[in-house]
Nucleic acid binder design. Structure first.
Length: 916
RNA sequence: GGGCGGUUAGCUCAGUUGGUUAGAGCGCGUGCCUUACAAGCACGAGGUCGAAGGUUCGAGCCCUUCACCGCCCACCA
């Protein structure tokens, strides 16, 4: 029989099969809708492209789980959903990886030459790249595999060139010698963002610079990097510093190199700091560079690409910067020009990729001007990006990231986009060997645009990896052509990403999106309907919403890192517990603003949950086999006569509403917990237990019960499907015995709140019955009544309660192990072990003696608690202010509570008195 | 130097616009192989919500200060 499930839940046996099936059947491929079919709402999500060198780590799995839940949910809610996958060529990371590989072969990129090396990287990519994609397939990410891209694909590369050229035409890209962060190991410039700062307890070295006119006198300067003194071209003092005013314009002798350099006046020198005089090295410090500009100072670069002292360093040429530092200090000491050190903590910068200390260094680079107005007018990149968020065209969740983003955008500097690498998008610029000018063009030009010379050589630098990824929201949709995709799917709906690439990627996408998807760059806009200002931003933003997720840490809240050896491998954990269980773990722990401390015991618990679902399904199928009928017939009017059915439907539709609401707010944890609670506690523990007698009753009754069971179960599967796509798919197909109404449960409809199906009365009544049953179980446990022994129960309560219990007598007797209920008119409070609640009193008839002392203790404790509550209620009710200021609802509630409490307390007190 | 977040049960975390008795999972204790599930079932114990003030009829929630932990951003030599 096709609906047979194996006796034990084995995720390994079902997951791989469905994962392959979904890909093979192109289940999640999206056809571009024809013009005129815009009635379907669109939901588009761009996958943050993983590095092509990467393999899946827990952070990915977390992020992907969130994205997949959202996209599956939206899809099931009837949206046309596009989730576009791809990988990033990851310039530095990939180049480093292949270089390492070459090193083991005794080769190097220099030996291979540029072309050979790039070919080798492609070769590497073909064999090893994108392993993360197959891992994504195994996890069931419901992306559109037909649209997979790689950032170095030809079409995307053309877009990169196009964007570069256009920015250059607008005057927003320039080339020049500026101080950049230089990594001597990667031998490339890196952007400010790629530098990680580290507080280090270091030294401040104090050096004496003798005055030229009187070498016995000197000015003392301080530095954290003594070796840079070789490039000093001035000493600056504050013009208002009385100690130095007389010296301004005079010269000092730069020790060791014996060069004369001027003493200049500049506000940059802070009289409060150190001696008040500061050495100026325009080629190795951004501040000094600015001072140098103001005073037209020479800029002497004293280091080569590997941070060794170059020919400008005289006798120190060839030394590594650190070796040079030591030697310089020794030499200064010998000459009596070293004035000692002071402890000083400073933030040194390290290369985010290889951890080498970066060197601020003057070099020729390309930059994007983010605060400059485009030649043809319009907003600066930074202004557009700022306003897109501050004016609410992009909503950021959690909200506090909005402030962080806006502050960053406020203080942003020009973006250094050139990298001295070989792997990446080569900059489309050609330098002329004759006039030295540069020509920027879409295709390799034949002649220099400036002098007509044909001695042209292409720029050797490539672009920062983030330059191309900043464009993905529109380049993946066919820009610069006016494609249908661009029209339908831009802007994307949502970006889900971690805060670690907030600035690297999100901010840059906003800058580029707002610029290039506005006039005059946006394709397909008819003349005359070009929006402006805020309207324009609304249409040009790369995404409407951003959800920033937290970090996945290990169970001890430590950052996962290879060096610490605490990395949890998602594939291994998935194989152990099943993808569904891992996904559910991550979802249930994804509360906004809090890092996820990944704990295997949680996953173990959710595997148990999957097992629960599995066994509930087996229970259902077992009954189907026995009584026949249909799982998909739906509830009959007769079935709805029964309280448990009215109740479970009401609960189901209420829970559906809650899950939808939670997902709308990206509260994955809330959504997951709600559905977990519903399925396990309400559906399995109560509902299934209640209907067991009906299922083994007369055939028509059994079939009616089964129909409701199947109906609710099927709905629950759809509710669970975005969280646990595999197990729900498996069971769902089994329910339809090979003839499902859709190719996949992922294409079925997600349950929604249906107010007509809610039944407050049924829910209240079930609550009373559950309360009664739990109380009886409780008494039985306390009396140590053997689980198998059934006992009569006595109940005292109002007519409505009596009626309710009478109607559902079978349920109560069965679930509470009771064999007979007697309704009594007098209070039961004095019966041994009796329970007293506002709605009823209940006692169990059992000959065995109760532990009288324990019984007393329990009641005394309860009494005390109730008395505390009563005192509190009465205190408030006696307060004029409370009565006049608190809302009527609260006051009434408290009054009602007071009456109830008095009643309860009276009865319990009487019972205690009687018990002696 | 700026800015942000956290502190609630043994552990990991929820706690809606302040409102009547602060919740969940795991763990723990007791008892159960009850014909879907021992990856299970039933029952239970466990919290003066980091500290001190303040606002309010009423504070886990709002305000102030402090303590501890964590993160981000910063061109003071």
């Amino acid at each position: 029989m096709s609906h047979e499930l194996s006796k034990t839940y084995d995720p390994g046996a079902i997951e791989a099969r469905w994962a392959e099936h979904w890909v093979r059947e192109k289940l999640f491929s999206v056809k571009t809708p024809e013009p005129g079919s815009e009635t379907v709402p669109v939901f588009n999500l761009l996958l943050p492209p993983p590095n092509v060198t990467g393999s899946l780590h827990m952070g990915h799995m977390f992020e992907h789980t969130e994205m997949d839940i959202i996209i599956r949910w939206r899809r099931m809610r009837g949206f046309l959903t596009l989730w576009l996958p791809g990988t990033d060529h990851a310039g530095i990371a990939t180049q480093l990886m292949v270089e390492r590989q070459l090193a083991t072969e005794g080769s190097s990129r220099q030996k291979l030459g540029r072309e050979g090396f790039v070919a080798r990287v492609w070769e590497w990519k073909k064999h090893y790249g994108g392993s993360i994609l197959s891992q994504m397939k195994r996890l069931g990410d419901s992306v559109d595999w037909d649209r997979e891209y790689f950032t170095l694909d030809e079409n995307l590369s053309r877009c990169v060139t196009e964007v570069f050229v256009r920015l250059h035409e607008e005057g927003l890209i320039y080339r020049g010698k500026y101080i950049v962060n230089w990594c001597p190991r990667c031998m490339t410039a890196i952007s400010d963002l790629e530098v990680t700062r580290e507080e280090v307890a270091g030294k401040l070295y104090q050096i004496r610079y003798p005055l030229a006119e009187d070498p016995k006198k000197f000015v003392t300067v301080a530095t954290t990097r003594p070796e840079t003194m070789l490039g000093d071209t001035a000493v600056a003092v504050n013009p208002r510093d009385p100690r130095y005013t007389a010296l301004i314009g005079k010269k000092v002798i730069l020790p060791l190199l014996e060069r004369q350099i001027p003493i200049i006046a500049d506000d940059f020198a802070d009289p409060q700091f150190g001696s008040g005089a500061v050495k100026i090295t325009p080629a190795h410090d951004p501040n000094d560079f600015q001072v140098g500009l103001r005073h037209s100072l020479p800029r002497i670069n004293v280091m080569d690409d590997e941070a060794r002292i170059n020919e400008n360093g005289g006798p120190y040429q060839g030394l590594d910067r650190m070796a040079a530092r030591e030697k310089i200090i020794r030499d200064l000491e010998q000459r009596g020009l070293f004035a000692g050190t002071k402890d000083h903590t400073s933030a040194i910068g390290r290369c985010a990729r290889c951890n080498t200390i970066v060197e601020p260094r003057l070099s020729m680079q390309w930059f994007v001007a983010v605060k400059k107005q485009p030649a043809k007018g319009g907003m600066t990149l930074a202004e557009a990006a700022s306003r897109a968020v501050s004016e609410g065209h992009i909503r950021i969740t959690p909200e506090n990231y909005k402030t962080i983003y806006l502050q960053w955008m406020e203080n942003i500097y020009d973006w250094c986009i050139s990298r001295q690498l070989w792997w990446g998008h080569r900059i489309p610029a050609w330098h002329c060997g004759d006039c030295q000018e540069t020509t920027v063009a879409r295709e390799a030009p034949q002649k220099c645009a400036h002098c007509g010379s044909s001695r042209l050589e292409q720029e050797t630098d490539v672009l920062d990896t983030w330059f191309s990824s900043a464009l993905l929201p529109f380049t993946t949709l066919g820009w610069p052509q006016a494609t249908r995709d661009l029209q339908v799917f831009y802007p994307t709906s949502l970006l889900i990403t971690g805060f670690d690439i907030l600035f690297f990627w999100m901010a840059r996408m906003i800058m580029m999106g707002c610029h290039f998807m506005s006039p005059p760059h946006r394709p397909g806009l008819p003349e005359g309907v070009r929006p402006t200002g805020s309207d324009c931003l609304r249409e040009s933003v790369p995404f409407r919403e951003v959800y920033i997720h937290a970090l996945v840490r290990d169970a001890d809240r430590q950052k996962m890192s290879k060096t610490k050896g605490n990395v949890v491998d998602p594939i291994a954990i998935t194989e152990k517990f099943g993808t569904d269980a891992v996904r559910f773990t991550l979802a249930s722990m994804a509360s906004p603003g809090t890092d996820v401390a990944f704990n295997e015991s949680r996953t173990e618990g959710y595997r148990a949950f999957a097992n629960k679902i599995w066994n509930a399904a087996r229970f259902m199928f077992m009954n189907l086999d026995r009584v026949g009928g249909s799982l998909t017939a739906g509830a009959s009017p007769e079935a709805m006569q029964r309280l448990e059915n009215r109740w479970i439907y009401s609960r189901f539709y209420r829970v559906a509403g809650q899950v939808n609401a939670s997902l709308s707010d990206y509260r994955f944890d809330e959504a997951a917990n709600t559905v977990y609670q519903f399925f396990w506690a309400e559906f399995c523990d109560w509902y299934l237990e209640i209907i067991k007698p009906a299922l083994s009753g007369p055939q028509d009754e059994a079939r009616a019960a089964l129909a409701v069971l199947g109906n609710v179960f099927e709905g629950a599967l759809r509710l669970l499907s975005p969280f646990m796509p595999f197990i729900t798919e498996e069971i769902w197909h089994a329910m339809y015995e090979g003839k499902p109404p859709a190719k996949s449960i992922a294409l079925a409809r997600f349950p929604e709140l249906d107010k007509k199906r809610l039944n407050d009365e049924a829910e209240e009544q079930m609550t009373v019955l559950q309360d009664l049953i739990v109380n009886i179980r409780n008494i039985r446990a306390e009396m140590k009544i053997e689980p198998k022994a059934k006992t009569p129960a006595k109940i005292h309560g109002g007519a409505d309660v009596q009626h309710l219990i009478q109607e559902n007598r079978g349920m109560v007797e069965r679930l509470a192990s009771v064999n007979g209920i007697e309704f009594v008119s007098e209070s039961l409070a004095q019966d041994a072990g009796a329970r007293t609640t506002p709605k009823f009193e209940v006692a169990v008839v059992y000959e065995q003696k109760v532990d009288a002392a324990a019984d007393r203790d329990r009641r005394t404790k309860e009494l005390k608690k109730l008395e505390g509550q009563l005192a509190n209620a009465q205190r408030q009710l006696g307060n004029e202010q409370f009565l006049s200021k608190a809302p009527a609802k609260v006051v009434d509630g408290l009054r009602k509570q007071e009456v109830e409490l008095k009643n309860l307390i009276g009865r319990i007190r009487a019972a205690l008195d009687n018990l002696g």
